[in-house]
């Protein structure tokens, strides 16, 4: 289950951001998990419960966005939505497509609780 490895990487990054903002605690963490990223959102959410323990994100909520897959057709130029194992152009049926959206695994936003003195500087 590589979701735990992904979560540990997520927590490391969140901790780095929290430190750079002198945050006391982390509230909501928003991530994007593409259906073609190889990561299962449900398993990731469960792994997060384990990975966050004892870290600055111990009380954080994880919000997971799963965007629709969008492919661009190199033959006819159309963009269309697709399924993970059927990434064909919906317009011409061609297979020479490129995934525009749906393979990302990204940290989008972190909500922090920042002390007043530090917040005033920003």
């Amino acid at each position: 289950m590589h979701e735990l490895s992904v979560c540990q990487a997520l927590i490391d990054e969140v901790a780095r951001i929290a430190t750079s903002c002198a945050a006391r605690t982390v509230g909501r963490i928003t991530i994007e998990v593409g259906q073609l990223s190889g990561v299962e959102p449900e398993l990731l959410a469960r792994a997060f419960e384990i990975a966050r323990a004892g870290t600055c994100a111990a009380q954080a909520e994880l919000s997971i966005a799963v965007p629709e897959i969008v492919v661009h057709c190199n033959d006819c130029g159309a963009s269309s939505s697709a399924r993970p194992n059927r990434l064909l152009c919906a317009s011409c049926g061609g297979y020479r497509t490129r995934v525009l959206e749906g393979d990302g695994l990204r940290l989008r936003a972190v909500e922090l609780d920042v002390p007043e003195a530090h917040a005033a500087l920003h």
Binding site: D12, A58, G104, R106, A109, D113
Partner: peptide, 28 residues
Amino acid sequence: NAHLAAGDSHARPGAHATVEVLQDLLAA
């Protein structure tokens, strides 16, 4: 310090900040 992380956020003395990031989770 758990009280700072739970419950009514308005009771916290600090400010909330949302940091927008767009970074690959496996960047490291």
